[in-house]
Write a protein that binds this DNA or RNA. Structure first.
Length: 366
DNA sequence: AAATCGTGGTT
DNA sequence: TAACCAAGATT
């Protein structure tokens, strides 16, 4: 016998639930820049930025991004380096490369109009099940589920669903719940209200049940188990990597940088030359060897470590020793390394770890 | 299914 | 402070 995760679904008074939820959202929703209109392009940009990212972090990025790329066509025609620069510091950079790729597709294949069918919109790069549902419901008023972490948390409590929400297979169960309960009159507010509720009231720890507009519909509150839900397995710890980075100046006081590969971690961002190193030997020696082996560049580095920087990713921790050095600018010809002025550095998108490297180097240099 | 892919804020 | 968390998608 299989446990029925949606055994309480039939007990929800659908019309009452919708009304309580939507009227609360109508009263209490935050005034956010992407809620000023329903422009599918703006909704799209906001949804991509908000993936795994807090509202307060996104707001200034969203405003700057829309200033720089006000329309879908403007983004489609922009240079990728400029787009990455606008994303600098937001993280998960493949989001914005996929976004621009998809926007180009809409520009060329759909006449610049974001498609409004699940099949077409889901085929766009970077648009998964959540984002497809969010755009379809918020921009086009279609009754499609948009199941994110908030929605899984809210419904795990309301319907007392004890599935592990960290498992990919769980999402479809929550989508089924949303399909059964979503308002056909206002799917946009219904979906947004679930997320707003998760963000403001039905929080991961210490949910404010006494302020909750749908408390009377909540099975977990009824049973006093709201703090036990949702069930979420933990992911394994990040692994540490020892790195060494070199801030290398040319005789005319330019700085040597390198563009990362187009796939993988921090794809297409710029960086100071750096390598994984062994702790058993001098980081300086290993750097010089790798600069020669990988880039055919004969640079000379100073002996001491300038500074140590730690940078934590989701799945990796970089411990970086930073060295300074110099090179003849003519030695960089025909290599993957380029030398730019300090002023020009500002135009290149760097990961935060390398922003730290430059900041610390400048502090010590001056 | 489990890893990969960033960063900053909170507990 | 280490762990956890935040409007996920891709491989």
């Amino acid at each position: 016998m299989k446990e029925q995760p949606l055994k309480y679904l039939e007990t929800i008074e659908r019309e009452d639930f919708q009304k309580d939820l939507i009227s609360w959202f109508s009263r209490e929703q935050r005034n956010l820049p992407w809620r000023r209109d329903r422009d599918p392009y703006k909704v799209w940009v906001s949804e991509i930025m908000l993936q795994q990212t807090r509202v307060d972090t996104v707001i200034p990025y969203f405003n700057r991004f829309l200033e720089k790329f006000p329309t879908l066509d403007a983004l489609a025609l922009a240079e990728e380096d400029e787009v990455l620069k606008a994303w600098e510091g937001l993280g998960y950079y493949s989001r914005v490369r996929n976004l621009q790729s998809a926007v180009k597709e809409v520009h060329e294949q759909y006449g610049g109009i974001v498609p409004d069918t699940p099949k077409e919109i889901s085929s766009l790069k970077g648009v998964g099940p959540y984002t497809a549902g969010a755009i379809l419901s918020i921009a086009y008023g279609k009754p499609e589920p948009a199941v994110d972490g908030n929605v899984m948390r809210v419904f795990s409590r309301i319907l007392s669903i004890w599935l592990d929400i960290a498992k990919p297979s769980s999402r479809k169960v929550f989508e089924e719940a949303v399909r059964a309960l979503i308002s056909k009159e206002n799917p946009s507010y219904f979906n947004q209200a679930l997320m707003e509720l998760g963000a403001l009231i039905c929080t991961p720890t210490s949910p404010s049940c006494l302020l909750c507009p749908v408390r009377e519909h909540c099975r977990a509150f009824d049973e006093g188990v709201q703090e036990e839900l949702p069930v979420k397995s933990k992911k394994k710890a990040a692994r540490k990597l020892n790195m060494a980075a070199a801030v290398i100046f040319t005789e005319d006081d330019r700085v040597v940088i390198h563009k990362r590969p187009g796939t993988g971690l921090l794809a297409n961002l710029w960086e100071f030359p750096n390598f994984e190193v062994s702790t058993s030997r001098s980081g300086r020696k290993q750097l010089e060897e790798r600069l020669e082996a990988d880039y055919k560049v004969d640079a000379s580095l100073k002996a001491g470590v300038i500074t140590k920087i730690q940078h934590v990713f989701s799945h990796i921790i970089w411990d970086i020793e930073v060295y300074a050095g110099s090179v003849e600018s003519s030695a960089l010809n025909e290599t993957e390394l380029i030398a730019v002025t300090e002023q020009e550095l500002e135009k290149y998108a760097f990961p935060v770890s390398h922003q730290k490297i430059w900041k610390e180097t400048k502090l010590i240099k001056n």
